[in-house]
Write a protein that binds this DNA or RNA. Structure first.
Length: 569
RNA sequence: GCGCCUAUAGCUCAAUUGGAUAGAGCAACGGACUUCUAAUCCGUAGGUUGCAGGUUCGAUUCCUGCUAGGCGUACCA
């Protein structure tokens, strides 16, 4: 479709030039030619409103302009185009030929799992950092959403020719993990009978730390009481990080997300890079001292307030290692870095970008996208709070457990991923848990998977009846005469540009919607037109090619989303 | 206060980035299983795209101002 669009673009451009030279179009140069996909079949396969745009400049009626352009088009140039038609206020509708339909099917059948891919990214290296939750508790639902989106974006970028990787930044240093160590220490001593203790201010209240402390007591008893409190906190901190990070990794694996690189904040801090960053900032006079702390002149970059980079106690704030981390990403040679941050990080977007600018890195090198919050909603509409600090949250694992109890483990992951992916990143997502469970059978993901299973089933049935699909070159595709077949092929032909578009625009949610539409065309077709028909074997072979193409595109789309494409349901 | 996000059918959301008659699913109502899987299909109904202006051939989309909701605005990460 893409190459076809490029060819149509050239044809129209030549036609406009010809019209200008013939003195029939009073404009100086050919304009850009926009294309819009058509909504109704009678509007053809591709449409362009170019005549509408020229109306003012040429001081002519749009319809007249459209007629003039079409008159100068040389149709013989192109076998895949049937006709140009003028409609409505001045749209030029392009109707594609049967040859184009047949070519589309041949392309899909030949490309198989590669259909939809391209090399547009030219091997450019992209890193997407996502989830990056503190190792202070289990992954929550928002992390699950980020995991699904990030994983799919990497798939999409790789599909269109980039060299993209998944990276997780482990915040295993700083104040948060100190609070973790303190919290575990309190839970440990509580487990040994010190009832009067309380979790310190800013600590972690969650039950999971009580359980963790109990497993420590069960395994090692009260041996740690011999250590000083300071030693204990350090020990429990490291033990807790290892335990919780392991838990997060297990959750992600269960969710089908496999990170390529895990980068430790502690390692960044120990690398000496933060010191280099500070030295650089100091050299550029971005820093000043006030109230015992060292501040960065964020206001010089257009922000409304400065921010502390070295606290009065001499420790770095989060920003220094984070700036160093991004410097490190750049040094590793990524052409583009995309951070998917949680909703509570929106204050960081501007600052992080400013730090990157202060480091002298290209402005468009870092792209930050906020994965908006997920509200778990009860059927009565009440929202469940998911803050980790308050110890009251719904974990990703708990969500999958819930779903798995009704639909099984594999579908639970499929359903959760689909729900997370079907919304645009920057929209708030209400996840009605009860609805997701009780109406699992009516879930759109099943609708799509069922379409795929039906395709497989047709081949299995055919096999039992002794009907084997023939190679596409041995099949008369002329047999595909139904309007629904033309519409299906049109939809199939659009897949590569949807993949490219959603990769370039980081809009993963277009894939679920596309697949839903494709399934929505296939199911009615299946119901109204029989594929396997021994009384019309030629047409059967042709339809098998179409079914095979639908199956391929559904499978390819689902694979991009990390969702299974079952052969039977 | 300032900043970011959101507002589309009863509900949850689309609308290929400014194009033709704003589309799906769920919920509601009425139909279709001796036929490749009824987890499906067909049909009916459902809209002043939050409100008021502006930009232009054309606005759900862009601009301004309101209104409502969410989030952020740490010497936490």
């Amino acid at each position: 479709m893409d190459t076809l669009k490029a060819e149509v673009y050239e044809m129209l451009k030549r036609a406009i030039h010809a019209a200008i030279e013939a003195g029939e179009l009073p404009i100086s140069e050919a304009p850009d030619i926009p294309f819009s996909p058509t909504k109704a079949p009678e509007h053809g396969d591709i449409a362009t409103p170019v005549a509408l745009g020229l109306a003012k400049k040429a001081r002519m009626a749009p319809l007249t302009i459209a007629e003039t352009i079409v008159r100068h088009v040389n149709l013989d140039e192109h076998l895949r185009i049937d006709k140009f038609e003028i409609a409505g206020p001045g749209f030029i509708n392009i109707h594609l030929s049967n040859k184009w339909m047949y070519d589309t099917l041949r392309t899909i059948v030949a490309a198989k799992s590669l259909y939809g891919t391209c090399d547009k990214g030219a091997g450019k290296r992209v890193q997407i950092e996502f989830v990056s939750a503190n190792p202070t508790g289990p992954l929550n639902i928002v992390s699950g959403r980020a995991a699904a989106v990030g994983d799919t974006l990497v798939n999409l970028l790789n599909a269109v020719g980039y060299d993209a990787i998944r990276e997780y930044y482990v915040n295993d240093a700083g104040g948060q993990v100190e609070r973790l160590g303190e919290s575990i220490d309190v839970r440990y001593r509580q487990a040994l009978g010190e009832d009067s203790l309380e979790i310190p201010e800013g600590g972690y209240q969650g039950e999971y730390l009580q359980e963790f402390a109990q497993t420590i007591v069960a395994a090692e008893g009260d041996t740690y009481l011999q250590l000083s409190e300071e030693e204990r906190v350090v020990h429990f901190r490291d033990k807790g990080i290892a335990h919780l990070l392991g838990q997060q990794k297990a959750s992600l694996e269960r969710f089908g997300v496999d990170f390529d690189v895990w980068t430790s904040e502690k390692a960044i801090r120990d690398s000496g890079k933060p010191e280099e960053i500070i030295a650089l900032f100091r050299e550029k006079a971005y820093l000043y001292k006030a109230e015992g702390a060292t501040w960065f002149r964020m206001t010089g970059f257009g922000d409304d307030k400065d921010c502390v980079v070295i606290r009065s106690n001499g420790e770095y704030t989060y920003f220094v290692p984070d700036a160093a981390y991004h410097r490190d990403k750049f040094d590793r040679g990524f052409n583009k870095v995309i951070d998917l941050l949680g909703p509570d990080h929106q204050g960081h977007v501007t600052r992080l970008k400013n730090f990157v600018k202060a480091l002298g890195l290209p402005e468009d090198w870092l792209e930050i996208s906020i994965i908006q919050q997920v509200n778990l909603v009860d059927s009565d509409g009440t929202r469940l709070d998911m803050s980790k600090r308050r110890g009251q949250f719904f974990t990703l694992d708990a969500l999958i457990d819930e779903l798995a109890s009704t639909v099984g483990e594999q579908f639970a992951v499929d359903v959760a991923r689909y729900f997370f992916l079907m919304r645009a990143n920057n929209t708030h997502l209400d996840f009605n848990l009860e609805l997701a469970i009780t109406q699992a059978n009516e879930n759109p993901v099943f609708y799509i998977q069922y379409a795929h299973a039906r395709c497989c089933s047709i081949f299995q049935q055919g096999d039992e009846q002794g009907i084997q699909p023939k190679p596409v070159d041995a099949v008369s595709l002329r047999q595909l005469t139904e309007p629904m077949e033309h519409e299906l092929i049109r939809k199939l032909a659009g897949f590569p540009s949807i993949v490219l578009f959603s990769a370039e625009e980081r809009e993963a949610h277009r894939i679920p919607h596309y697949l839903l539409e494709l399934a929505g065309l296939f199911h009615p077709y299946y119901n109204q037109h029989r594929v396997l028909d021994t009384s019309n074997i030629e047409r059967t072979y042709a339809r098998l090619i179409l079914v095979q193409s639908v199956q391929t595109v559904l499978a390819n789309g689902l694979t991009l989303l990390g969702i299974s494409a079952p052969e039977s349901m």
